[in-house]
Amino acid sequence: MHDLSTAFVTAFQLILSLDANLLEIVGLSLRISLTAVLLAALVALPLGAAVALFRFPGRTVLVAVLNSLMGLPPVVVGLLVYLLLSRAGPLGELGLLFTPTAMVIAQTILVAPIIAALTRQTVADLNEEYAEQLGSLNVGPGRAIWTLLWEGRFSLLTAVLAGFGRASAEVGAVIIVGGNINHVTRVMTTTIALETSKGDLALALGLGIILLLLVLGINSTALAVQNTARRLYG
């Protein structure tokens, strides 16, 4: 018990003193996860909308696959990217394994299906209301993708933030492809895993608290944006 309270005090000291090591880890985490979410969103938003709006054979199967991929286990993604990037793998020559780039790749793969699946649902719901009006205005499905993404921008922000929450909180993928190398690929979650197993609870707790605050901040932002948007745009 005494150990635990000491750990808490040390954790807060680390946060309040803006400990350089801690800041480096938090900074790298944010850089990797934000880049991954940005890349995933660029692909997944139009993709999800397209699946919602176009009619093609195998669409139902694709929707089922997309929805299942939302629950993709991070370690499996990590393993696949590891195989892809390892020396003997097809992309081994790029020498990306155990770099932040490898971690971005893994998290992008992890997050893209989440954003795509949520986007598909949002756009399909919107289309129920808009389809006739857009049809009347001669807006084909190709144009409707961009129109409905814009119409759903506030709900879709939640989808993107959900993706960010997932990316910043996962440990399985980044630890496999990043390797948890100090000052190179060490992020919040991998550090927490490492420090906890070493018994050094202060840094782990400090990072845990920051991670929790981050998730809390994301969710309150999403809520605030949606409420404001509803008031302003109906």
Binding site: E129, Y130, E132, Q133, S136, T147, R153, Y233
Partner: peptide, 9 residues
Amino acid sequence: FQRPVMLRR
């Protein structure tokens, strides 16, 4: 249409 569909703009 009976129920106007307005874009969020």
